[in-house]
């Protein structure tokens, strides 16, 4: 399964990739993008099976990206996990309405990410 990580922080992308490696996800199945625009290009040219996306990003923010992705036919039931520091109730509801499947609160730690990803991998 191909996994796409979208985060403007290189470090977070690396951390998430390392966590995925622990789950025996091969390097060739991992994609990453620093912003929403770049992510859309990858989503269009590949069949992505899991999307990890940051909320706050330049150009196209995570929430907008998710709204666009949900409109793409093949991605209507794609598991989308939002990585966010916004844990307020109304923010989460906003994310749900946009089409987010699950969320991970920053700061990301290996244990919590793995726990969350278990059901999607």
């Amino acid at each position: 399964m191909k996994i796409l990580i979208v985060d403007d922080s290189l470090i977070i992308r690396k951390v998430l990739k390392n966590i995925l490696k622990e789950k025996k996800v091969s390097e060739s199945d991992m994609f990453d993008a620093p912003d929403g625009q770049a992510a859309l290009e990858i989503l269009n040219s590949h069949d992505i099976g899991l999307l990890l996306v940051d909320w706050n990003m330049p150009k196209l923010n995570g929430l907008e990206l998710v709204k666009i992705v949900r409109k793409i036919e093949k991605y209507q039931s794609l598991p989308i996990i939002m990585i966010t520091s916004e844990a307020a109730k109304y923010n989460v509801l906003e994310a749900v309405k946009a089409g987010v499947s699950d969320y991970i609160i920053k700061p990301v730690s290996g244990v919590t990410v793995l726990q969350k990803l278990k059901q999607y991998l």
Binding site: S77, L78, K89, L93, V96, K97, G99, D102
Partner: peptide, 24 residues
């Protein structure tokens, strides 16, 4: 708004819905 999401949104996980619950 929230209950509508619970009924209609098939992609949202239980955990995110419980986190979004404004009537918690």
């Amino acid at each position: 708004d929230y209950f509508e999401q619970c009924f209609m949104n098939t992609t949202a996980s239980d955990s995110i819905l419980s986190a979004a619950n404004p009537m918690e």
